[in-house]
Computed example of a mutant assay.
Amino acid sequence: MLLARSSGYPCRLTNQYQASGMIPMLKHYLKEIADQEFTERNREIPKMTTQVLQEMNSRGITYSTMTLEAIANFLLDEFLARCDFLKDFVVAHPSLLLSENKKDPITFAKTAYQERSFQERDKVSSLYGSSITRIAQSLYNEDMKKQIKERLDQGMEDRIRKNNLYVEVTYREIATAKEVQSNVLLLQPNIAGFGIDLVQLYRQHLEPLLRRG
């Protein structure tokens, strides 16, 4: 389940951290790295949309729904790349969050991923609108224009949901592994600062003595 529908509506956990002035390390580094990565990509987008328009113009179909579809497809691919970048970062760096001993690391990880994904979704949606304004105004097929925009929006939402599941599964597996490890450690009393497995202790010391007897 998605935790928030828009970057304009931060979740309760985000509000708590903003109020306290504390930002989780995972969210901090995700923002820093994503800002650098996406700033570079943002500079290239106008060039790429211009190339799309030039390609369509060379085919004599600039003012057509095919141009709208070409720009929508290009921007959808751009969003998918960004969304996957965010997911890969969150999945690859769980220690940034787990080291802070959060009570609910799964929710925190999903929140960090989702909030930035929603920001990029809104940004791409805005870029689409500004890129096709003049062309869209010249077209009268409102249904087709609406369908193209809806496919773009749906494609972005689908990838956010899919990657959200990857993030949840990754952190749930980590949480489960930690729980199992904790249960095992309960059977390993600490002697002189070293964890000793009871079975290993029996096999090394007591079992040989019993055999002699």
Rank of each mutant, 00 (worst) to 15 (best):
G193I: 06
I135V: 06
R161I: 14
L187F: 08
Q137W: 06
I174H: 04
P189F: 00
S138T: 13
K149W: 13
L139P: 01
Q154D: 11
L186R: 12
S117M: 02
I148D: 08
Q188W: 01
I132W: 00
Y140H: 05
K146I: 00
K145E: 11
F118E: 11
I196C: 07
Q137T: 10
K123Y: 08
I148T: 12
E150N: 15
R159E: 14
L165F: 13
G129D: 04
N163P: 13
K149D: 07
A136C: 05
Y171I: 13
R121K: 14
L152S: 02
V169M: 12
E173Y: 09
L152H: 05
A177I: 11
V169S: 00
I196E: 09
G193A: 06
S131H: 04
G193M: 03
K178S: 10
I196D: 01
K178M: 13
I132S: 01
K162Y: 15
L198I: 14
E173V: 14
V124D: 04
K162A: 14
S138K: 09
Y128F: 05
L185W: 01
I148G: 05
L186F: 01
T133I: 09
L139S: 04
S131T: 04
E168S: 15
D153L: 11
D197Q: 05
R116W: 10
